[in-house]
Design a protein around this nucleic acid. Sequence first.
DNA 1: AGTTGAATTTCGGGG
DNA 2: CCCCGAAGTTCAACT
Lengths: 231, 231
Amino acid sequence: MRLVIARCSVDYVGRLKAHLPLATRLLVVKSDGSVLVHSDGGSYKPLNWMSPPATLRVLSPDEADLEDGVAEQWTVQSAKTDDRLIVNLHEVLHDTSHELGVDPGLIKDGVESDLQRLLAEQIETLGAGYTLIRREYYTAIGPVDILARDSSGATVAIELKRRGDIDGVEQLTRYLELLNRDPRLAPVRGIFAAQQIKPQARVLAQDRGIDCVTLDYDAMRGVDDVESRLF
Amino acid sequence: MRLVIARCSVDYVGRLKAHLPLATRLLVVKSDGSVLVHSDGGSYKPLNWMSPPATLRVLSPDEADLEDGVAEQWTVQSAKTDDRLIVNLHEVLHDTSHELGVDPGLIKDGVESDLQRLLAEQIETLGAGYTLIRREYYTAIGPVDILARDSSGATVAIELKRRGDIDGVEQLTRYLELLNRDPRLAPVRGIFAAQQIKPQARVLAQDRGIDCVTLDYDAMRGVDDVESRLF
DNA sequence: AGTTGAATTTCGGGG
DNA sequence: CCCCGAAGTTCAACT
């Protein structure tokens, strides 16, 4: 990995065109040829970048560029697409290289699949007498997150989201439409379950007779922990 | 901006939990307190990070951490949420600071609004005799990208995307439902126009009687350029 | 400030 | 390999 601090301008040509005027920035060149252009602010997204695999070629600037004060020109060419990043370096303030090795990668906990597993294990969170039919119930238009039965024996389709948005309600509506054509399942009720549900999504769900349930992941994990400890 | 290369492990606690085992990585500390943790690979997204505004506190490791070889511990606390990033530095291989100043920011060309402008200017791309009614035709549920008339005088609602996905078809469907209630406009036909249309979106669109059109941005821009030069 | 929709999205999983 | 959906999405525009 190479770290360069330089006064530079940057042009990107590819899926769109973009330009960065002359300013001092951090350039990160990774060993797979990818390049990140960062300013001293904003969040994790670079101002501009080239995705790997890519190759960096260093060119001597032509006469016109020299007159503009360009000391060195980088052409970062994507290996797979014709995207190209051109960096005009006017002044290099720092330039170091470092051996990092391969990274073991990130371990996550608390994503949607965890939520789904927990809700399937603790299906009675939705009400007494609920029983699980199965997770990832496959239909022609995609898998229903959880299919269950309520205490009266009626089928319930559950759509699970971390953040409940209008799209999720649309998705569940399509599933319900399809499931209700199956006489072995019909009538199928819908439950929209999420850690947080947007007001608009809630209104749309109610309008379509879909119940909304907000889930407390920490509490569910807590129950899970207790169960793990006890048994 | 501070650049640190260190052998470190990282833990994130916030909207989810995540852990990075001990390895050598780049740590970027920006002046707004945000921190990026990058490996020497992958694309522009860091392995982990803290969004600004945030504050970095350096702690002396406790006894247990010292035994594990932790030389220094960083706690990066988000100012707005209770998200927290903890970096255990075992060995610092590089540590420099740099003054970058404020960045003038990125200038883009070729995003959806450009496509919309081009299609509105070249509405006959959709067929001979098409005329523009207006761009951004406002309705109660949001603006229709383009409203036009075909050669027979019938109203056409056009939804424009760079990448045509199922969501766009749903969106256009909602617009059509609403527009067709207006007797001055009805009957309104739908066209789903995008640079690329996903097969599933195409099927759904056809099922609902919506025409699909793929757009060639470069060609449209070319026509635009020629027109600009001629007139 | 909250909401909505796009993104050079990136990333991961499943067929 | 492509396709699809989730993301600590981020980002910008608009209400």
